[in-house]
Write a protein that binds this DNA or RNA. Structure first.
Length: 520
DNA sequence: CAGGCTATGTTACCCGACCT
DNA sequence: AGGTCGGGTAACATAGCCTG
């Protein structure tokens, strides 16, 4: 499968695509996504192919395409197509690119050491001159980027390994590099002519193959992007380069990272390192194998081994984290799908007030609250006139309950009794039935507090009314009587229930004193 | 083993105080 | 005035222990 796919995306086919300006949809049947660098903020994102709105036109790699960021939105965005591929593949490459972005955050020494890159890029070009470059391969190149950096350092200048490594990273840290690398992914496969490699070999040897090839390709195509590279990149020269390619190589140092990386990764054995024309077929073979996952894994392992020998061991960890990242992304996607499904298909449970309102409304609609019901409830509660019961209905259940208690209990009862003594269990249940019919369920504590609160409030009001008179009489009274004031008042209430409130003011003092004495 | 007693934990009620 | 909260207390339930 993959081999067929890679064949389809082989250098020749890609080249023909580029020449014929074939839309991205024709890259591969399995290619469903594209990595795009947004024009607005240069961010690299993953865009499904169906999101392209210029799909009928030519959507080529490394060219600007218009797409919809949101399927339902009319808003369109533009960005440069870095590569096409399957979703999984693009996710992988996206992560690699993001990894590069992180590496770019190491700002210093950007312009340093263009040579290692150039030399490495030359090697990479030698491999790219083989017939095996394709989008998939370029993807693999991206995946192997970090690993190849180390290998590159080994291949280019083993003696100055650390130095080269540093320099290479610095060059990679160039901000526009992501664009360039991504674009070269598509560009480079198109430039696979034997003449290129041959000329390069003649001119610069194997090490310079890559650069010379790039020169050739650039001279051929002369795209705008290349011009950008030429203008932005710093002009660096190497002793191995030809004079023709000096200025272009300086730009290529950024563009061709992926290519030489791949080639260097392909060169597993140290025997490949020495520059000789024989290397090319070897590299080609490895490039072919790159299209197979299993072989790629093997290659990775070998690279890991070589890197382990050199003391670099981070690639394995990088790979592991990459896989882990992919898994987590998949989990996240599935969870998001679940959440979206639940958002669409489920209604959240409303709060208690809303539920009460809904219950009440439902009962109204179902005609449960008929006149007969009101009369029945009034009879159960002990109210002769149902209209009075209806007048008790307030905006809250507790308020309604209080009003009903005030209606059914006389002031004497409110002053002298409390709790279940004031309102029996049966009446409470009847009141509660009516209240819940009107306002929905009400907690036990709230309901009892509402009923008891009426008694409490009435007594408190009475006490406050008696307070001035009590204070005047309390002066001659001993202190210990003050402490028992509440009890005396309560006792007074029991005895004084038949007296008028106005008369109480006068007699309170006398009664309280006598009652307090009785208590003690 | 059954019944009685006691200690402990839980629940409901009552009340005062405070806030809105 | 209505509503809420926290403390105190009685009522109730349960487990554990002791005794006949």
């Amino acid at each position: 499968m993959e081999k067929q796919q890679t064949r389809r995306c082989s250098v020749s086919s890609v080249h023909s695509q580029g020449n014929l300006s074939i839309a991205s949809a024709q890259c591969a049947d399995t290619h469903t996504h594209a990595i795009i660098q947004k024009e607005k903020d240069k961010k690299i994102i993953l865009v499904p192919l169906h999101s392209f709105i210029n799909f009928g036109k030519v959507v080529k790699v490394h060219e600007t395409a218009t797409y919809k960021s949101d399927k339902d939105s009319r808003k369109t965005e533009r960005g440069k197509v870095l590569l096409f591929g399957t979703e999984e593949l693009c996710v992988d490459q996206l992560q690699v690119l993001q990894e590069d972005v992180i590496n770019e955050n190491q700002p210093p020494e950007k312009q340093h050491d263009s040579n290692p890159i150039e030399t490495s890029s030359k090697k990479g070009s030698s491999s790219t001159t083989s017939n095996k470059s394709s989008n998939d391969r370029s993807n693999h190149q991206l995946q192997n980027k970090s690993k190849e950096r180390c290998a590159l350092n080994e291949l280019s200048k083993p003696k100055h390994h650390s130095q080269i490594n540093e320099n290479y990273n610095r060059v990679n840290a160039l901000p526009p590099m992501n664009i360039n690398t991504a674009s070269t992914i598509a560009i480079l496969p198109k430039r696979k002519e034997k003449s290129v490699s041959e000329v390069q070999r003649k001119l610069f040897g194997d090490d310079t193959n890559m650069n010379s090839k790039h020169c050739y390709s650039f001279e051929e195509e002369g795209s705008d992007e290349i011009e950008e590279h030429l203008t932005t990149a710093t002009a660096t020269t190497t002793t191995k380069k030809s004079k023709k390619c000096l200025t272009e190589d300086s730009s290529l140092k950024q563009i061709s990272n992926i290519n030489y990386k791949r080639t260097t990764s392909n060169k597993k054995s140290p025997s490949i390192i020495p520059s000789s024309p024989i290397q090319n077929p070897v590299a080609v073979n490895h490039a072919d194998n790159n299209q197979d996952n299993s072989t790629e894994q093997n290659k990775d392992e070998t690279n890991d081994d070589t890197m382990d020998e050199r003391g670099s061991f981070s690639f394995k960890e990088f790979k592991r984290l990459q896989k882990e990242n992919i898994n987590l992304r998949q989990q996240k996607t599935s969870l998001e799908n679940q959440v979206n499904f639940m958002k669409k298909n489920y209604i959240p449970m409303p709060d208690i007030n809303s539920r009460s309102w809904i219950v009440r409304l439902a009962k109204l609609f179902t005609q449960q609250l008929s006149a007969n019901d009101i009369a029945t409830h009034a009879r159960h509660i002990g109210i002769s006139n149902p209209k009075k019961l209806l007048n008790c209905i307030q905006n809250r259940g507790t308020h309604t309950a209080r009003e009903i208690v005030r209606l059914i209990c006389s002031q004497e009862t409110l002053l002298t009794k409390s709790g279940k003594e004031g309102v029996s269990e049966e009446k409470r249940q009847a009141i509660r039935d009516f209240v819940e019919l009107q306002h929905g369920p009400i907690p036990d504590h709230q309901f009892n507090e509402a009923i008891d609160g009426v008694f409490r409030q009435e007594k408190l009001k009475m006490r406050k009314a008696q307070a001035p008179a009590a204070k005047a009489i309390q002066k001659p009274v001993e202190k210990n009587q003050n402490s028992n004031r509440q009890q005396s008042i309560d006792a007074f209430y029991t005895k004084k229930s038949t007296l008028n409130i106005q008369e109480k003011d006068k007699e309170v003092a006398v009664v309280t004193t006598s009652d307090s004495d009785e208590h003690f």
